[in-house]
């Protein structure tokens, strides 16, 4: 399968500072790709290069095989984007905004404009001025604008900024439905892990201008699940016994009744038998899944995140 969005060894140097350092990743059709990193990691700069607002110092961005620098018009025909905020003309109505951007696209009919309005559920307020819209409505109008040209790639930069929990949930369902119905690719950037965890199929984690990890969300979760919590009547009494088991690499007391163990997870059952044989009454064994957040801190060396 051909990637719809291909980032190849992309770098951006401003002055002497390397903002983006040789990053590569692909996004495929029908995929929600999470683009994760703390503020200032270079997510928005990367997105600006994808949509041709700034020029890469090195490397290329291709959209459906079209190089953004050399075939700008063809590349942009296949993409819809919200960069940072949904930037629209506040002094125009929602419909006028869509008409303005429709005139910048090939062959957008009145019917198509109405279709995207219905899609983002803005029909009731579409003829009001955008300055009267709530942030959530602006976000939806921004998405409607980005979808006008039936793009193969949709880019949403921090789409949940300023949305309430209901709005975030709606957006998530909307993106899922959109991907299922149209088979487009969505790149969602965020600095909030929980959001990406729920939404994305694959993620790239970015820190200080570099991609530190790319993988499916499931891969990441499997990788993270490497500790076990053992519930015992008395942690301090049981700790030396636990440490005596061969495959345990580390064991620490969490509280009076819990010991956290790093070990090969395949040996969990044997550890249980081992403890029972030595009169440690195990009341529970719990495979502990680290959150993405914890992995994130490990990977990025404790960059500030929210």
């Amino acid at each position: 399968m051909q990637p719809t969005l291909k980032i190849n060894q992309l770098s951006k140097v401003i002055g002497k500072k390397t903002i983006i350092d040789n990053i590569s990743f692909d996004v495929f059709p029908g995929e929600v790709f999470g683009f994760l990193g703390p503020n200032g990691a270079g997510k928005t700069t990367t997105i600006r290069m994808i949509v041709g607002l700034i020029k890469p110092t090195k490397g290329t961005v291709s959209i459906c095989g079209h190089n953004v620098e050399r075939e700008f018009v063809q590349a942009m025909t296949q993409i819809g984007a919200i960069v940072e905020n949904p930037e629209l003309y506040k002094f125009l109505s929602g419909r006028e905004n869509l008409e303005v951007f429709a005139r910048m696209l090939p062959d957008v009919t009145e019917a198509r404009i109405q279709e995207v309005i219905d899609l983002v559920d803005l029909t009731a307020r579409i003829d009001d001025k955008v300055k009267t819209y709530s942030l959530g409505m602006r976000q939806r109008l921004g998405i409607a604008q980005a979808l006008l040209n039936n793009p193969r790639v949709l880019i949403l930069d921090e789409p949940t900024n300023g949305l309430d929990p209901m709005g975030i949930r709606d957006l998530r369902l909307f993106i899922r439905r959109l991907v299922e119905e149209t088979g487009l690719s969505v790149l969602v950037s965020s600095h909030i892990l929980a959001e990406i965890e729920l939404l994305a199929d694959r993620v790239a984690i970015m820190s200080r201008g570099k991609i530190v990890k790319v993988g499916t969300v499931q891969d990441l979760i499997n990788e993270l699940a490497s500790t076990v919590d053992i519930h015992v009547p008395d942690s301090f009494e049981a700790l030396p016994v636990v440490r005596g088991f061969e495959s345990v690499t580390q064991a620490d007391v969490v509280d009076e009744r819990t010991i956290r163990v790093s070990m090969n997870l395949e040996d969990t059952a044997r550890l249980n038998r081992y403890l029972l044989e030595r009169d440690v009454a195990v009341s529970g064994l719990e495979r502990r899944v680290q959150t993405l957040e914890e992995l994130f801190i490990t990977l990025t060396g404790g960059d500030h995140i929210v």
Partner: peptide
């Protein structure tokens, strides 16, 4: 940003 990321030179 919106204006310059549309398929128009």
């Amino acid at each position: 940003k919106t204006l310059l990321s549309r398929p128009v030179r």
